[in-house]
Computed example of a mutant assay.
Amino acid sequence: MVTIHELFQNDGQKSRIGTTYNKILYVPESVLQTIREYLDAQSESEYQGEDNTIIYTAKFPDGREMDIKCCGCQEESSWTEAVLFDEKGYQLTYTDVGEKFEGLWELEYDGIHYCVDVKPERNNSKMED
């Protein structure tokens, strides 16, 4: 879904004040459970490992993509982040490190607001809205 915010001025002219892209990214419950376990890991046998990253991607109408990532570590629990890429795959911006994977991820770049809501996949849900 795309939301374009417009501001109407007194003389009837309107100016665009921003665009927001909203996506829902459905992730299988089994994957979300694995991610939760990595984020809560307390011992070496539970850690994700630094060479093991779980990534789900939302694609936007302007060609940009947001990766939602669960990144592993060798000696501690995993962490999460979102990264926005342009249509050629170049990194544009990213979030701070987080401790949750599900829920709302938001980034802004060049006046455009990108929002991805990560939700558990249901029987009738698509991988991406």
Rank of each mutant, 00 (worst) to 15 (best):
E87S: 14
K88V: 06
V2K: 15
T34G: 03
G18W: 06
G63V: 07
R122T: 15
T53D: 12
S77F: 04
R64I: 00
T80V: 03
N124S: 09
W79Q: 01
K100E: 00
F60L: 02
E108N: 09
F60S: 05
Y94M: 03
P28W: 10
S78T: 05
E81M: 07
T20Y: 02
E108S: 09
C71N: 05
H5T: 14
C115M: 13
D129N: 13
V2W: 12
L107N: 08
F85Q: 07
K69Q: 12
Y38N: 04
L107C: 04
E50S: 14
K126R: 14
M1F: 08
Y21H: 12
I17G: 05
T57Q: 14
A41Q: 09
V97N: 08
V116P: 02
V27M: 06
I54Q: 05
K126M: 11
Y38F: 07
G72T: 09
E81I: 01
Y56S: 03
I55P: 01
Y47E: 06
L39V: 06
L39N: 04
I68A: 01
Y90N: 14
Q74E: 11
D110K: 14
P120I: 10
D117A: 03
K59E: 11
S125R: 12
T19S: 07
E65T: 13
N123C: 00
I54F: 07
G89Y: 08
H113A: 00
S77K: 15
E29P: 11
N123V: 04
G111Y: 13
T95Y: 05
S43F: 08
G103W: 04
L7E: 13
Y114H: 07
C70L: 00
Y114W: 07
E106L: 00
R122G: 11
